[in-house]
Amino acid sequence: MKIVIFEDEEPAARRLIKLLNEVSTDVEIVSVIDSVRSGKEFMKQNKSFDLIISDIRLADGLSFEIFKSHTVKLPVIFSTAYDEYAIEAFRNNGIDYLLKPVKREELKTAIQKYENWFSDSTSGVNYDVLLQTLLQEKKGFQKRIVIRFADTIKTVEIEEAAYFFTENKISNLCTFNGESFIIDYNLDELELILDPAVFFRINRQFIVNFKAIQKMNVVSKSRVKLTLHPSTTQDTIVSTERSGVFKQWLAGK
């Protein structure tokens, strides 16, 4: 089994290699890569290998960038120190998702999963089916948002969220009751944990709940202005590049 490791911290890579050798007798490490840039370079070389084990945060960015720019047909086991990218991982050929420090048994299970599904070299894997299965295994989309201020913690049910917006680089959540909270997630992160059937990123500042849209006006050829409830101080215009997808989303496609 030829493995490529994407990991930017040497101790973490060393530990992973040690564990791999403990859980399998058939491990060959092809390369250890520490950045998205060198990862992209490596993928261009078309070297042969069977499996990728990838940390999500690499030295210069998120490892998903590597998989986005190459049609990677190989399975990936993702690992991360903190659980926040599970959904995105499964959208990127992820077959398993390990939390650091990685436990030997969990790595063993992941490797077995790989062996069961892929080692019989049947031509092509249906990643859509795989993604669906894995999404069902995981609990799906986030149910609540945790809000912290000083020493108090409160939670807001996702369905209570009318929209999310950034103002002065700070992310806020506005509920249908008109309450507004500062939250820890940025909009990019929120996109990954919200149900795309309900929430839509209309532009760089706003993610809106379908139910918060009160009125839509066409303001120019490809721009749509939304009136939201509760009302907003900023303009909520669907950006030109998002308007096509926006219409599909409205139709529930």
Binding site: E9, P11, A12, R14, R15, K18, R57, A81, Y82, L99, K100, P101, V102, R148, F149, A150, D184
Partner: peptide, 30 residues
Amino acid sequence: IRFQFETLRNQVNPHFLFNSFNTLIDIIEH
């Protein structure tokens, strides 16, 4: 007050904590 809040929030940053544990395991072994 915001500064104190921000500092505290950074320090309970789970990334920092779990990455530190991960490093520690490697140090213990190597």
